[in-house]
Amino acid sequence: MVDNVLRDGRVLAPRDDSDKAIVHFNDIAARDERVEVVMLPIADGLTLARRR
């Protein structure tokens, strides 16, 4: 589980290095074929990942 993956919407227009790091993490998680990923739009976002 990873919290704050939407960064109050700033992942759409990153403002600083922290926002850019979350965008990078989201991209890596989405492309990683070893895991199934679900992003829940609860508060600042929650990602659930499990090994395939």
Rank of each mutant, 00 (worst) to 15 (best):
R15F: 08
G45D: 00
A13E: 11
N26Y: 07
A21Y: 06
G9N: 01
E33W: 10
D16H: 10
V35Y: 14
K20V: 05
A43E: 08
V35C: 13
V23W: 01
L12Y: 08
N4W: 03
R50A: 03
R31I: 01
D16L: 10
D27G: 13
R52V: 07
M1Y: 13
L6M: 03
T47E: 10
A13L: 14
R50L: 07
R15A: 15
D3W: 08
M1A: 15
L6Y: 00
M1S: 14
P41F: 00
I42H: 10
H24M: 07
D19S: 06
V38W: 12
R51D: 07
D16E: 11
L6S: 04
I42Y: 11
I22Y: 05
V2N: 09
L48I: 13
V5Y: 04
A21D: 05
L12P: 02
A49Q: 01
E33C: 05
G45R: 00
E33S: 13
L6W: 04
R52I: 06
M39E: 15
G45Q: 10
V35W: 08
P14N: 03
V23Q: 07
L6G: 07
N4T: 04
L6V: 08
D16W: 04
S18G: 13
R7D: 02
E36H: 10
D27Q: 14
R34T: 06
D19Q: 12
K20P: 04
N26R: 03
R50Q: 05
N4F: 03
V2F: 06
A13N: 14
D44F: 08
P14K: 03
A29P: 03
N26I: 00
L12F: 08
R7N: 05
V5D: 15
G45F: 04
L40M: 10
V5P: 00
V2Q: 12
D27W: 06
R34K: 11
V37E: 11
R51W: 10
I28A: 13
E36M: 12
D32Q: 03
D17P: 05
D16T: 01
D3P: 02
N4H: 10
M1P: 03
P41C: 06
A29S: 11
D27H: 09
D17A: 15
F25Q: 02
R34E: 04
V2L: 12
F25D: 03
V11R: 00
H24P: 00
P14F: 05
R10H: 09
R51I: 12
R34F: 02
H24I: 02
V38N: 10
R7V: 00
A29D: 05
A21P: 04
D19N: 01
L40S: 07
D19M: 07
